[in-house]
Simulated scan of single mutants.
Amino acid sequence: MSCLHLRPELLDPGPSAALRGSLPTLHQVLSQVELLAVRHLVVRILEEVPATLVQASLFGSKARGRARPDSDVDVLLVFRDLPPDREPQATHAESIAHQVAELTDVPVTVWSVALVDLESGCRTPMLVDAMADALTVWCWPEPLACIDFRAADALHCCAALLGSVAEGSVEYADARAIGNLPNATRRARDDIVRLCTALLLLRGITRPRRGEVVQECVRLGLIRTKTDPAAERTLDWVRNSFGPDGRQDDGPVAPPDVPEQALTEFVEGLIERVAEEAAALRGKLPSRGTRRGIRV
């Protein structure tokens, strides 16, 4: 590994350095090399990315103290303002993270957001959870407060999820038409996860991911399977497709043990259910102005 050099003020921050994170906590969850890599990353972000950084925080499994040996060191970058597509600043930050990872052998990654993404009606569940987990590495002038997930956020995310599923229906049909069953199968699986995620978000539940989303919907009785064997087999297929640990996104996805028509009807039923529940929730809220789009 190459020798890592940091500016002295990051090793012994003075009043103007604004490096006021929970250092004892960071020392508990990061090794010395990981901590130096993260600090080096923040220095370069401050110096090289053409945007005003407000806060840099550790989040994810490392911040929660539940990291596996192969877990990334995830850093959330909150900028004062970014273009709607987050570019070119997000790509620039990712490039810096890649260079730091090569230099230090620490798999550091970044996620760039803007302050507007923290406003009610723009929050994603992943961002809410990231802020809840966050251990501040650098901030100016003060650490940002945690944010909660509100009904307006749920509606905004559900609209984006339903849009993704609509695109998925076309992709699924096109893939089957040309005989690309692996792509069609994966798309169907992912769209079911998106719809189950929407059902949970409408109830303010943000934490489950991947197969856990389906399991939580069944546990809460949001999807009843006892009277619908095809639905039960479909949901078992979705859960099992993420592997024994529930985290395997990239592996092959075997086709479900249900007829194609039953799978289509199941997805269409979920779409209708999400749309109806979202409309009911929207009717309970005061009307508000539109927000700019977000990525879900």
Rank of each mutant, 00 (worst) to 15 (best):
M1Q: 12
L6M: 09
P8D: 08
E9H: 14
L11N: 06
S16Y: 09
A18M: 09
A18W: 08
L19W: 15
R20F: 00
G21E: 00
L23T: 09
P24G: 07
P24W: 02
V33I: 06
V33K: 11
E34W: 01
L35D: 07
A37L: 03
R39W: 01
L41V: 02
V42K: 02
V43P: 00
V43C: 05
I45S: 02
I45A: 03
I45K: 05
V49M: 01
L53C: 06
V54W: 01
Q55T: 02
S57I: 01
S57R: 03
L58V: 05
F59Q: 03
R64M: 06
A67K: 13
P69T: 06
D70R: 14
D72F: 04
V73L: 07
D74R: 12
V75A: 01
V75N: 07
V75K: 05
L77E: 02
V78I: 12
V78A: 01
F79C: 07
Q89D: 02
T91D: 10
E94R: 15
T104I: 00
V106Y: 02
V108M: 01
T109C: 08
W111A: 13
V113N: 05
G121P: 07
P125Q: 08
P125K: 13
T136K: 01
C139P: 06
E142P: 03
A145M: 03
C146Y: 00
C146V: 05
D148V: 13
A159L: 05
A159T: 15
A159S: 15
E167M: 13
E167C: 06
G168K: 04
S169Y: 04
V170H: 11
Y172F: 14
D174V: 14
R176A: 03
L181W: 13
N183W: 10
N183P: 00
T185W: 06
T185P: 01
R189C: 04
R189T: 03
D190Y: 10
I192L: 14
I192A: 04
V193E: 06
A198D: 08
L200S: 08
L200M: 11
L202P: 06
G204Y: 10
P208V: 09
E216F: 09
L220N: 11
I223D: 07
I223A: 05
P229R: 08
A231M: 12
A231Y: 13
E232K: 15
E232G: 15
T234N: 08
T234D: 00
W237P: 00
F242H: 09
G243N: 01
P255H: 11
P256Q: 09
V258L: 03
L270C: 06
I271Q: 15
E272I: 05
E272M: 09
E272Q: 15
R273C: 09
V274S: 05
E276I: 03
A280H: 13
S287K: 14
R291P: 00
G293C: 05
